[in-house]
Design a protein around this nucleic acid. Structure first.
Lengths: 191, 191
DNA sequence: CTCAAGTGAGACAGACCTGTCTCACCTTTG
DNA sequence: CAAAGGTGAGACAGGTCTGTCTCACTTGAG
């Protein structure tokens, strides 16, 4: 039978509550008991919707990936040139770093705690990073050969990931500024 | 009383065993019981040398930082120009990515699991990253104004951290190549 | 030799973990 | 109304976690 409307809402509520707790406390350190207490949900309700904790984590990451990519695609529509589209991504990161409950990248953290390439969580992380890289590559491909677009997209991804790390260590402001300079130099360089 | 020679050796053995296990399995997921079993050491021996698990983790990171910086400083002596010194650092990362039991950066992982800025582990992470950035800044300062050296050092650090992340996702080869191109463009750009 | 420090082995406490199960209750649907 | 699926609350099992403690033994220092 198809899940009822209320069941789907409960499921989504669990995902968002778990997201908030994982972001603050990490994955292994955040217990199921804590999640169901915070979500005000019975334990069996959680285990009826998700096979186990790892499955919940992967679902949380995939949900977050979808939200992230929606925001990114919407932003890309507001800009005209490829360079402007890339700039809106950097703007997005800058706002993220400045947001009050910034705790670093949940996907980086997931990779740290689930480093086995076959693990369902590991795969959810690669999906997010590959999606971001592909979006930047597609943006740049309108302005340069595909191979060079792929290379620069990878470079920008590295800069973004490194900047996120520095931001988690309290150096977000400088990291954004330095990243903008570097991005400008890389994009302006002769092909 | 000063610790005996054997006691110091045991202590060091615990640190190196914990390092190996943390690298593979993460921090929360690796239990004390596993560490002392692998190190073939009594539990009380471990707790006599370290105040608690967090203290052991911080010690492991600091030991690893010292080893890393020794290697870096030794490499820097073999190169002449600032650009060559930076290149030897990139070479070091490339060899690291290709090493058989590469599992990503232990400091990134520690930051993911201990995100509280006041935590002893968090501080050990910032020490390592700041140390690396400072070394690159000092290298570059021989070739450009101090402010620009600091900015480029931060950019290179971001690239290195991002490349390490990509390497953990199996894209180390391409990441190194793209990073080298980006570094060359950034270093060659007009001041 | 003598004594103290260090150690190995393991029991132990108390807490927490994941995941299963029961049972009474509610709500939705036919 | 009646049947069935979803839920809340919590007990429960079996395991693991950190950290403390005891006791017998070994090893190093004076």
């Amino acid at each position: 039978m198809a899940p009822s409307r209320l069941a789907a809402e409960k499921r989504q509520h669990i995902v968002e509550t778990a997201y908030r707790l994982f972001k603050r406390g990490g994955f292994h350190a955040t217990g199921i008991d804590r999640i169901i207490a915070e979500a005000e949900v019975a334990k069996m309700t959680m285990y009826r919707h998700f096979p186990n904790k790892d499955g919940l984590i992967a679902e949380v990451l995939d949900w977050r990936t979808a939200r992230f990519e929606r925001q990114l695609d919407r932003l890309a529509e507001t800009a005209q040139t490829p360079d402007d589209k890339i700039a809106t991504i950097l703007d997005w990161y800058q706002r993220w770093f400045d947001s009050p409950d910034f705790h670093g990248c949940l996907f980086q953290h997931a990779l740290a705690e689930f480093g086995e390439p076959d693990h369902v969580v590991f795969k959810a992380v690669t999906r997010q990073k590959d999606g971001l890289k592909r979006r930047m590559r597609d943006i740049l491909a309108a302005r340069m050969p595909g191979e060079r677009a792929a290379s620069i997209a990878a470079t920008l991804l590295m800069l973004l990931e490194g900047a996120t790390l520095l931001a988690q260590m309290g150096q977000g402001k400088a990291a954004i500024a330095d990243m903008r300079q570097a991005a400008a130099r890389i994009l302006d360089a002769p092909g």
